[in-house]
Design a protein around this nucleic acid. Structure first.
Lengths: 181, 181
DNA sequence: CCATTTTATTAATCGTTGATCAATTATTCT
DNA sequence: AGAATAATTGATCAACGATTAATAAAATGG
C-alpha cells in the first residue's frame, strides 16, 4: 500500500517529489512510520524500482521460437521503448534516481535486471555458437549499457531534439545487427 | 576561485558533498554570497561541469592525419576512459548529477559537448561518403549515447563486476568497427 | 577630504528534507 | 483482566537551498 502510493506520487510528479512526509500524508500515516518499513529513502525508491522492472518484464512479449533474430531483437527493443514512453517518470526513477554514494543495490534488484538481461540474451542467442558463450554475454551487457545510455539521456531531455527514444534505439539495433549478421 | 574550491570538494568527496554552506566555508565567505555568483546549485554544478568537459577536451590527443580510423577511434575512446578514471568524481558529476526537473542546460554547456562530439565525428569521418552526412551524424550520436551509458553505469558501480570501464568501451568500439568497416 | 552613491557581504530567517527516538496508543497472548 | 509485544506518533535534530533586510566596504564626485 505504501509502495502503491509511492509509485503514484512518482508517476504524477516524478521521483524528486517523493518525500517521506508527502508519502506518509498520502497514506494517512506519519513520516516516522515509514522507517519501520523501509530502511531509508533509497530503499523505498529501490522497492518501487523493483516493481517497475517487474512491470517492464511482464510488458515484454515473449517471442515464438520461429521468429528471426532481427525481429525478436527489434521487438524486444520496441517493448523497452514503449514501456519507457508509457511510464516516463517511473522509468526515470529506475534510470536516473541518484542513490546515495554508499547505497548497495539489493540482490532482488540485481535479479530483476538479470531477468531482463536474460530476455536480451535469448533474443540474440542463435547468433552464437555454443563455444562463443563469453562473447554472447559481453554483447548482452554491451547492448544493455548502450540502451541505458539512450534512456538516461532521453529522460534528462539531453538527446538530440529531432530524434526520439525509438529512433536512437533503432539505430543501436541496426548497428548491432550489421556487426553480427 | 569559488569554482576551483567547488571542483576540489567534488574531487575529494563527490558532487553530493557540494553544499553551498561547505563551499562558502571553504572559501571564507557566507553561503548567501554564492547566490551573487551563481543562480542556484544547478548553475554552480553546471559551471564546474563545463570546466570538466573542457579538461576532457584538452586531454584528448589530436590525431595526426595518417592514422587509420580504427586507431583514431580507439585512441579517442581510450582518452575518454583514462580521463574518467583519473577524475572519477568530477566525471560522475558530469554524467550523473541530478539536475532539477526544470533546469535548462546552458548554451555554453551544449557547445562544450558539441566540441567533443566533433572529435568523435572527425575520428570516424573517413568511413562515410559526403552524401552520407546524415548517417554519420546519427552514428556520432549513437556512439555518444552508448559511451554515456557505459560511463553512467560505471560511475554508479552497476557495471558487471569483472569488467571495467575500458573493456566495455572496447567492446563498443569493436562492435562499431565490425559494423562499419 | 568629506559625503554620497554603489557595491559587496553578512547574519538571520524561511520552508523543507531525511532521519531518530522516547513516549504513547493499540494489539495480541496467556 | 493483565502483562508483554507491536504499532504509531509527535517532537526533534541537523542539514539543505534559497531569500532578504541590514550592514560594511569601496568607489565616486565635488
Amino acid at each position: 500500500m505504501a509502495l502503491k502510493a509511492a509509485r503514484e506520487i512518482i508517476r504524477k510528479d516524478g521521483v524528486s517529489a517523493l518525500s517521506t512526509r508527502r508519502l506518509a500524508r498520502q497514506i494517512g500515516y506519519t513520516s516516522g512510520m515509514l522507517y519501520q518499513i523501509f530502511r531509508n529513502r533509497d530503499d523505498l525508491v529501490e522497492q518501487v524500482n523493483i516493481g517497475t522492472l517487474a512491470m517492464l518484464y511482464d510488458h515484454c512479449r515473449t517471442d515464438p521460437r520461429d521468429l528471426s533474430v532481427q525481429i525478436r531483437l527489434r521487438r524486444l527493443a520496441d517493448d523497452f521503448v514503449s514501456f519507457a514512453t508509457a511510464h516516463p517518470n517511473e522509468w526515470d526513477a529506475v534510470i536516473n534516481y541518484p542513490f546515495s554514494p554508499d547505497h548497495q543495490t539489493s540482490q532482488v534488484a540485481h535479479n530483476q535486471t538479470d531477468q531482463l538481461l536474460a530476455l536480451l540474451c535469448d533474443a540474440i542467442s542463435e547468433l552464437y555458437e555454443p563455444e562463443q558463450a563469453d562473447r554472447k554475454q559481453r554483447d548482452v551487457r554491451l547492448l544493455w549499457n548502450c540502451l541505458y545510455g539512450i534512456f538516461a539521456l532521453a529522460s534528462a531531455g539531453r538527446l538530440t531534439q529531432d530524434r526520439s527514444h525509438g529512433a536512437a534505439v533503432d539505430d543501436l539495433i541496426d548497428l548491432f545487427l550489421a556487426a553480427r549478421t
